[in-house]
């Protein structure tokens, strides 16, 4: 499989699933070309609703549709849709409406558009809501599986997708399991946990580290909520060192979730890699390097952490 953005894989998966399930509808706020639901809208014009640049109304309207039996995919950039947090909190989460909230353009990887378009606090926000799982797939295969799962899952879901292409990381035949993590590379010295766009970089970092004699176990944490505590504790118990890497604020995201779980169940030395402060315009590669999320940066942080 060639590299593909998870937003693109989402658009294709939705088109396929919609052919078999007429409950699926899409809601957009003038970004359907970017969230990749435009093809769905062309194929199913009566099931695609572009509500203009009015995300709060889109979220609430999605809740109402869900309460009549539809399965609405409510789509925008992660920052814009999660920015309507209070509507998500009451109309979707508390109402327990079967709405699939899709936040694309996650993280600093969107690059040139700069901070105002970057979803950087969305995991932290959504993780705090009862009743809403948070899922961020790492490649095309996992995205397709996660979307199919979301259709079947009764209840709200938050799906976090990328603008940038993602290299394939999941093995052929991989099956997404809700609440399950995937060990992509076994190791003994340190546990490297990535999610979405950072998973491939964790694998690359593990290769760099291997050349120096450091054995890193790499985990794809597609399920940020709920965490796969069993996999986390097994790996942390084995390596004794945990590093998380995410294209999200360093506060409240995957690293925060892992720290909370380990702190209670198995206190383990750890490092959280993520975005500090606001993002900024620039090329994605340069931004990842600046925030230490590229393979060299991740490997460097691990080296320092392990005192190697």
């Amino acid at each position: 499989m060639p590299a593909k953005a998870s937003r693109a894989a989402f658009g294709e998966a939705l088109l396929e699933l919609a052919a078999k399930d007429d409950r699926i509808v899409t809601l957009d706020a003038d970004l359907s070309k970017s969230t990749m639901t435009a093809a769905f809208a062309r194929a199913y014009p009566g099931r695609a609703f572009n509500l203009g640049i009015a995300e709060s109304n889109m979220v609430g309207l999605g809740a109402g549709l869900a309460l009549t039996g539809k399965i609405p995919f409510v789509c925008s950039f992660a920052c814009f849709v999660v920015g309507r947090f209070e509507t998500i909190r009451i109309s979707v989460a508390y109402t327990n409406a079967n709405v699939k909230i899709v936040g694309t353009h996650a993280g600093i990887a969107i690059g040139e558009d700069g901070y105002s378009q970057m979803g950087l606090e969305d995991i932290a926000c959504m993780r705090a809501l009862p009743n809403v799982p948070v899922v961020q797939p790492a490649d095309e295969l996992e995205t397709r599986q996660a979307i199919a799962w979301a259709v079947e899952h009764e209840g709200p879901v938050y799906l976090r997708l990328t603008r940038q292409n993602l290299e394939p990381v999941c093995p052929v035949g991989y099956r997404f399991r809700f609440g399950g993590w995937l060990v992509l590379r076994p190791g003994t010295d340190v546990t490297l946990i990535g999610t979405g766009g950072t998973v491939f970089n964790c694998l690359e970092a593990a290769k760099l580290l291997a050349a120096e004699g450091v054995s890193a176990e790499v985990i794809d944490a597609a399920c940020i909520k709920p965490l796969d505590e069993e996999s986390l504790l097994a790996s942390a118990g084995k390596t004794g060192h945990v590093v998380t890497a995410e294209d999200h604020s360093i506060a409240g995201g995957l690293g925060g979730a892992v720290a909370e779980a380990l702190g209670e169940a198995l206190p383990t030395p750890m490092r959280r890699l993520g975005v500090q402060g606001f993002g900024e315009s620039g090329d994605a590669k340069g931004l990842y390097a600046k925030h230490g999320l590229d393979p060299a940066g991740i490997a460097g942080s691990v080296r320092k952490f392990l005192n190697r």
């Binding site: 609430g60 309207l61 109402g64 549709l65 009549t68 209070e86 509507t87 109309s91």
Partner: peptide, 26 residues
């Protein structure tokens, strides 16, 4: 029918309900 009280949200939900009902001609 819906959690309300965080003001301003009920009309959007109602639009969704009305649309969903119209789509299946209820």
């Amino acid at each position: 029918e819906a959690a309300t009280g965080s003001l301003g949200q009920g009309l959007s939900i109602s639009l969704g309900l009305a649309l969903g009902l119209r789509l299946r001609q209820a």
